[in-house]
């Protein structure tokens, strides 16, 4: 899907979809980041929830290959167990163009049975000419 970034407006909902993080996916994430933390294995690492939600958000707007993640805010408000039925929502917070690049800020939220587990705000720089980052 091709997204016309000019049409994205602040407040526009871009994601509202279920998200389930299985124990296997959580384990794959732990292995990938070499997570040696002391967090109870019965919980999904909070950054795994953020990463998977962010992937869904970026997929929704079909970011071009050269897009660069420049900043990130995260707030963890409740731990997430594997296989929980989560709901991921996201909206456009900012969309502006200057200096030959688009600056897109997307905010997202992951809820578990109506309880907010995580909120995030991602700043993305999109070069305006082709795939150059």
């Amino acid at each position: 899907m091709t997204v016309d970034f000019d049409t994205l407006t602040p407040g526009q909902r871009i994601v509202d979809k279920p998200l389930v993080i299985s124990a296997a996916v959580a384990d794959a994430y732990r292995r990938a980041v070499e997570d040696g933390s002391s967090l109870d294995g019965a919980l999904v690492p909070p950054t795994a929830v953020a990463a998977l939600a962010l992937a869904a958000v970026m997929d929704a707007v079909s970011l071009p290959a050269g897009a660069v993640h420049t900043a990130q805010e995260l707030e963890f408000t409740a731990p997430v167990p594997p296989d929980a039925s989560l709901q991921c929502t996201a909206e456009v917070a900012q969309n502006s163009v200057r200096g030959g690049a688009r600056f897109l800020t997307l905010q997202f939220q992951v809820s578990n049975a109506e309880v907010v587990a995580l909120t995030g705000r991602s700043s993305i720089l999109i070069p305006m000419n082709g795939a150059e980052a």
Binding site: S38, L39, D40, L43, P45, P46, V68, H69, T70, A71, Q72, E73, L74, E75, F76, T77, A78, P79
Partner: peptide, 14 residues
């Protein structure tokens, strides 16, 4: 520990 997973906040720049 779990205090981070249930109440941590992070604001960073790459």
């Amino acid at each position: 520990g779990e205090v981070w997973a249930s109440g941590g906040k992070l604001k960073i720049r790459f």
